[in-house]
Write a protein that binds this DNA or RNA. Sequence first.
DNA 1: TCTGTGACGGCTA
DNA 2: ATAGCCGCCACAG
Length: 121
Amino acid sequence: MPSQESQAFYIAVYELCQTIPTGRVTTYGHIALLAGAPANSRQVGTALKTLTTNPNHEFNTSNVPWWRVISSQGKVSLRGKDEMRQQQEKLEQEGVEVTQNGLDKYNIKLSEFGWFEGDEE
DNA sequence: TCTGTGACGGCTA
DNA sequence: ATAGCCGCCACAG
């Protein structure tokens, strides 16, 4: 069971993910920043995993748009091959262009599809 | 208890 | 483009 602090962090991540527009992506670092923990970018990934996997939360975890969160390098950073592919598909369904350089290396142009607070539309 | 790992990223060189 | 280092913390063994 996560500590109370991290529980709050998880909830912040959950809510911030809801603000990412369809068809746009943002980074782990940006979510961490907005959550008030700029150095905790890695924890965002953990939170996403937990939120998607664990039903033990007071809020609905089924609609966490985890696939809209990528690394600041514009890369899909999941380890599992299948999960990477799943993320790629989800993004493309939303109209995000995903380029593939080499085997299981997916890239998204942050300059085009990146969403950060302050961006409108 | 302690260690290693991870949906392990970001930054700098 | 890649490599090395720094940061954080939950969780499994």
